[in-house]
Design a protein around this nucleic acid. Structure first.
Lengths: 236, 236
DNA sequence: TCAAAAGTGTTAGACGTACACCCATGG
DNA sequence: CCATGGGTGTACGTCTAACACTTTTGA
């Protein structure tokens, strides 16, 4: 019977040299065959007494020291050729974590973070999997409110917009973006302002977690921070 | 290690008493514990030497005698409680077949078709799975061209519209629908007309299979009849 | 000639996009 | 008072929904 594993693509945003936000993800170094020494997505075999999402969440905790702000199943990969030396079916999840929550302690010899657009050759079909996770992330960014998975509990409109811009890879009109977000009903102004900027102090917002719709499919509900919400999805 | 199975939700459209199209799907009668005697989604354990999608396709062939016109992975279900008596992880696919292709021979004591909105209690969590498959079908109907998975090679604009109306559960404006479909570039007029109606004979169309885009994720490509195509997805 | 569906035309409103402009703060 | 981003106003083009209307067939 085929072996069953769970892996997770974990995204966060980090500023690059110019200050622009960029997607990063962690990989772990393999310490046995096949692909010994190569970087791979964090994960491992599914144990008998563990839920799929629990396995993904545990993997994430072990790799980053974090609880995810968003976690969703991506796809089950099971083609015959994907693992030399033995059939493996991998159920892959993808997750968002906030940059400011990442414990530096977890950056070590066996765990390393890479820019998503500058990955090394990964083990197995993991480069393909990351590409697919990226497309899902970008797609979902357009119609759901997952963006705050990258952010702290409060944030300015500009910070929120930077998340969208980094993920979608294009500039957005600040005025239109503001109106769109405000009319969505998902945001609540905290009344406080961010001070210390060298310009007009921006309003701080948080997400409205009171009205937390789940998907129409009513299925992969994840609510670590009530992160989920769906209007409609356009996927593959 | 958990057992690994593949199941498939197979949709087709049948006219009800009033002539309106309705979604139907086949179930198979279980002949062993657990849930002995209950109806369940067609499927079975994944063998060592079989691709996931091949297993789904085989299941479908055994149940309906058909090759699917559309086939896509739905979700991997793996909660601990879903199968009394032993952990089972099910990777579920969903499929579309054309009504006129279904061989009646496959309707027997152990395989029966049900209206999707009038299902019996199914084994395991299969009612939940069908609900999820339905939401995915409805959602995907709005932005992709899967509709012809229910139809023969040629069809009239009205037949195509009936598919949309049945799946989405609402009436669509014939004029606007026509323009939308024509401007999509996916349809080609065959030049022939359907005769024998008691009104003006409608144009017959087929799908343009020359321009067959795959999804942006570039992943679950299925092209039994070049059925795939994606613009954007909105899902859970 | 009538019914019924095929197929075309037209219009009003919603919505997205672009961009001009004022506001509030630090330096 | 200037630079900078925060925040607001507005107008134009496109898309969509609604519906009137003409066309072509069978009966």
């Amino acid at each position: 019977m085929p072996e069953l594993a769970v892996s997770t693509v974990i995204f966060t945003l980090r500023p690059d040299e110019t200050g622009a936000m960029q997607l990063w993800l962690p990989a772990v170094k393999r310490i046995r065959s096949p692909f010994d020494g190569m970087w791979a997505l964090p994960g491992g075999p599914l144990s008998e007494e563990e839920d799929l999402i629990a396995a993904a969440s545990r993997t994430l905790l072990e790799t980053t020291g974090l609880k995810p702000r968003y976690l969703e199943q991506l796809y089950a990969f099971g083609s015959l050729e994907r693992s030399p030396g033995g059939r493996v079916v991998s159920i892959v999840y993808w997750a968002l974590v906030a940059q400011n929550e990442i414990a530096d302690a977890y950056e070590c010899e066996n765990v390393s973070w890479f820019a998503a657009d500058n990955l090394p050759n990964l083990a197995f079909d993991h480069n393909l999997i990351v590409e697919y996770a990226l497309s899902r992330l970008r797609n979902k960014m357009e119609y759901s409110r997952i963006a705050h998975g990258f952010l702290g509990d409060t944030f300015t409109m500009a910070q929120l917009r930077e998340v969208y811009e980094a993920v979608l890879g294009r500039a957005l009109d600040p005025g239109n973006f503001r109106r769109e977000m405000e009319s969505s009903g998902d945001l609540v102004a905290t009344g406080e302002r961010l001070i210390g900027t060298k310009h007009r102090p921006p309003q701080l917002y948080k997400y409205d977690t009171s009205v937390d719709l789940t998907d129409q499919g009513a299925l992969p509900t994840f609510s670590e921070h009530s992160a989920n919400s769906i209007k409609r999805e356009k996927t593959a």
